[in-house]
Design a protein around this nucleic acid. Structure first.
Length: 475
RNA sequence: GGGGCGUUCGUCUAGUGGUCAGGACAUUCGUCUUUCGAACGAAAAACACGGGUUCGAGUCCCGUACGCCCUACCA
């Protein structure tokens, strides 16, 4: 009898979500948050939903929305169903606010922004808490003025609340620290704090994985869950990503947008691996496939302290992913890179050549542009531009040897062993070690000094092109 | 000001009371070689500080320092 390895019918399917606000590029830190949510859901046969938090109409733009979608797509983080627009759900949010009002869990506050601001300034000046206590909390409806109002939740003022977080553990908050946050603005539109809770509930979100800058918000949002009697999702507040100097990753550190990383030529798979490893670990595993990541990813593996972004390690991980990727997949990735950076697309001949050369290129490239750079010998056409460094090895003696080599190449059978033997013999005939011949040969074949093995290049180039290039150089 | 969270090699981290504190990136040195930002090998490198608890603490408790987050009719 085989032991049943599947989980016994789960009480509910895992539903995670990524909820960015469309006010800029997809930040790399947000991308990691999305990745964690995606990994968690995908590893458990759950759903990964996307919600655009566009309730701030002044700051939300369509370009930003598109940039987020593009970024996720590039990273291969596919979401289930259509993205949900939070702004579209304003009526439902307001409905819940009025429900809360009817339950006396919320109240109308007629204090003006000016009054509140004045209060805060005074409190600040006096070194007191700036927590605003509305005088309208317990004023009966009959005494309400006919004036604009906001709807505020009635937060408890005594006792404490403890919330369990899968990353942070049990966190306790004094209720007296909670403010009667605004639910509905004076124009009747919902505020983020309300919208999030209503949407998460309506979307059936079971696990909220988000940045720990929201930890304090969890307590405020908890008020709404309590008042509505809704079941609370599992919480996991993950630490933020810092720049190399330990400050929150920002433009000062260079690239912050996912699109910028794409333009720098980091392959998506390497990016996913690196990002997953930043703040999460699975023993000593450093490099892994998506399938392994999905299988291994768990909330318990997430660390509590912020991680610094390290480009060197990113490059190393990416290099390993390039080396283990399939040739066709890499070609596809290169074409995406060329397109994303506005470069000319590959010709049919270049595609074929690159594909043939790929096994020799991918072992030594860390990024897509490096891969392209190593493959320049196959992309270029005669006559080659010879780099200065490479040209140095093409002195008169070298040219003579190259000229001597071509006849032997003409009737050698075109495989690595023969090529090595023939080249070695020619070098020996001139009293040289093969190493001495390799440099000019490399220059002739590629016009540069950092290339794949000369024999690999010969094989990929083919007999005619190889001989033609050597003759060009020997002339 | 108030509250919350964090602190293991330079960096990412393993570690759940007893380890020579492990791995990876980077660094340095070396080997090989047909170049290389390739490969291989080696070295150096950490428990923020101070008190406890305990036979024994990186692991538990308290405090200090430093850092970060929240404290909006932003999200």
């Amino acid at each position: 009898m085989v032991k049943e390895r599947l989980r016994p019918a789960m009480p509910e399917t895992v539903v995670t979500r990524f909820a960015p606000s469309p006010t800029g590029m997809l930040h790399i830190g947000s991308a990691r948050t999305a990745l964690f949510n995606w990994l968690y859901a995908r590893g458990r046969g759950g759903k990964f939903l996307l919600r655009i938090e566009d309730t701030d109409k002044a700051r939300s733009t369509d370009e930003a929305r598109q940039a987020i979608l593009d970024g996720l797509t590039w990273l291969g983080l596919d979401w289930d169903g259509a993205p949900i627009s939070q702004a579209d759900r304003a009526d439902r949010h307001a409905e819940v606010a009025h429900d809360l009002l009817a339950k006396s869990a919320a109240y109308k506050c007629f204090s003006t922004p000016e009054e509140i601001e004045a209060f805060r300034e005074e409190a600040r000046a006096a070194g007191r808490s700036t927590l605003f206590r509305s005088p309208w909390r317990d004023v009966p409806e009959s005494d309400h003025p006919a004036a604009p109002f906001v709807v505020r939740i009635k937060a408890p003022r005594d006792g404490a609340t403890t919330l369990h977080d899968e990353v942070q553990g049990d966190v306790t908050w004094q209720n007296g620290q909670l403010d009667d946050m605004v639910l509905l603005r004076s124009d009747g539109t919902p505020v983020y704090m309300l919208a999030v809770v209503v949407d998460d509930h309506d979307m059936g979100v079971t696990h909220i994985i988000r940045g720990d800058d929201h930890l304090a918000n969890a307590f405020r949002q908890n008020l709404i869950y309590e008042a509505m009697g809704w079941t609370k999702p599992v919480l996991a507040h993950i630490p933020l990503i810092f720049g190399p100097d330990g400050k929150k990753l920002s433009k000062r550190h260079g690239a912050t947008g996912a699109a910028e990383y794409r333009a720098m030529g980091y392959p998506a798979a390497g990016m996913r691996n690196y990002l997953a490893r930043l703040g999460w670990s699975h023993g000593d595993d450093e490099v892994f496939t998506d399938a392994q990541a999905r299988e291994w990813f768990d909330l318990s593996g997430i660390g509590k302290s912020p991680a610094r972004f390290d480009f060197k390690k990113l490059e190393n991980i990416c290099g390993q992913h390039i080396a283990m990727s399939g040739d066709a997949a890499l070609l596809h990735e290169i074409e995406g890179f060329l397109d994303a950076t506005g470069q000319l697309p590959l010709t049919e001949i270049q595609r074929d050549g690159l594909l043939n050369a790929m096994p020799h290129l991918k072992e030594r490239a860390k990024t897509l542009p490096e891969l392209l750079e190593k493959g320049r010998f196959i992309l270029a056409s005669r006559p080659l531009d010879i780099e200065e460094k490479a040209a140095k090895s093409l002195d008169l003696d070298a040219k003579a040897i190259l000229a001597d080599l071509t006849p032997h190449l003409r009737d050698a059978s075109w495989n690595r062993d023969t090529l090595e033997a023939v080249t070695g013999q020619v070098a020996a005939a001139h009293g040289l070690k093969f190493g001495k011949l390799a440099a000019p040969l490399r220059a002739a074949l590629a016009g540069r000094t950092a290339t794949p093995s000369v024999f690999d290049m010969m094989l990929v180039l083919g007999r005619d092109e190889t001989i033609a290039r050597i003759e060009d150089a020997a002339a």
